[in-house]
Design a protein around this nucleic acid. Structure first.
Lengths: 144, 144
DNA sequence: ACTTTTTAGTTGTCATACTAATTATTAGTT
DNA sequence: AACTAATAATTAGTATGACAACTAAAAAGT
């Protein structure tokens, strides 16, 4: 039975993703970054003075709407983003970096790059490419 | 700067892992399995009439103690596992499948294998091996 | 034997994920 | 125009995940 192993692959994938995120989160905490890894992902998506609807942010970051709402809530409470009412669609907000958010993004960017690198050391250029290809194949296999 | 891309690799890994787990969870729900994917992982670890301490279960499943406690709570409430007081160490419980748990495990096993397979279709034998190797390298890179 | 340190498990808090249900608004249909 | 369907965002509920603090018991050190 070759199907048995897939359960353990799923476990391996889950475990590794958690470790990667957890490691980054620890470094975020010990560096007093004052944001979470997921909040960072949002900030980064709002770079270059972008005004994005939450719907678009959810798409970009691969998170669902309720999760987005709560992360934006937290970022607004920290004063790093702001909700701006959308002119043409009163159902929507656009989210935008505040001045403080822009500063935070610029400050942390090099440090985050550095932290992220740690997970991928000892991997060859080919490893990156293969991993990317395989993960995308898996993702597409489950596309609804 | 080659360091930039690592942030997006981390994102890709996280996104894929969530998709794999989410897909399985949806199939669990639509099949009325009445357990979550994480609870399944515990049941499977208790196969073959094993009595495991929560500490050992945590180790095997890669979860921390509080998470384990809560998952076991739920499994016990569903009547699928039971806590047995440890004879030599009164701090510990051993966790064990009930009769109902054994039945559940046997019933779901082939279906879970089938569900899990879906994510990995179109991947070659070589892909599996590479993925496994790369994920393990990443995991070890972050070993404390 | 007594004290200190470790260890197993629990509880509490916060953040993330997923689902379902709700509200307000827009788009589509007749 | 009126009615219906679809959409953006929120809220509520449950589960997982990480961390800290706590209890009880065992192990180690003196």
């Amino acid at each position: 039975m070759t199907t048995k192993k897939f359960d353990s692959y799923s476990y391996l994938l889950d475990r590794t993703a958690r470790r990667v995120k957890g490691y980054a989160q620890q470094r975020f905490a010990s560096g007093n970054f004052d944001i979470t890894v997921d909040q960072w992902l949002i900030l980064k998506s709002l770079d270059n003075d972008r005004y994005l609807k939450q719907k678009e942010l959810a798409e970009i970051t691969g998170k669902d709407n309720p999760t987005l709402t709560r992360i934006i809530d937290l970022l607004c409470k920290k004063g790093l983003t702001e909700r701006v009412t959308h002119k043409e669609d009163r159902r929507s907000f656009t989210v935008h970096l505040t001045a403080a958010g822009t500063v935070k993004l610029a400050e942390l960017s090099p440090q985050v790059d550095d932290i992220r690198m740690k997970a991928w050391q000892n991997l060859t250029e080919q490893d990156y490419e293969q991993l990317k290809t395989i993960l995308n194949k898996i993702y597409q296999n489950l596309e609804s």
